[in-house]
Amino acid sequence: MLILIIKIALAIVIGYCCSYFIMAKRLYASNDYGDTSGKVQDFDCGTWELEEKNYYGPYASEDWKHDMTKAKNSL
């Protein structure tokens, strides 16, 4: 009997959660406020140059601070 209750409880949880998600997805289709039909102005409106530097190892924080001071002084 208890095993049957567990099965029913699990089935209801699974059924309800999936149904709620499906309902929300269908609702969103008509109320997405333009989110899925096109991007809000993004990075395609310019020319980008991005330099990345990651500091690892024993002197990482010193190197990083050194570059920080350099950037500050170059202003």
């Binding site: 310019g46 020319t47 980008w48 140059e49 991005l50 330099e51 990345e52 530097k53 990651n54 500091y55 690892y56 990482a60 924080s61 190197d63 990083w64 570059d67 920080m68 950037a71």
Partner: peptide
């Protein structure tokens, strides 16, 4: 971890 990012746009 430490990171530096320079952006020119």
């Amino acid at each position: 971890t430490y990171h530096m990012r320079k952006a020119k746009v």
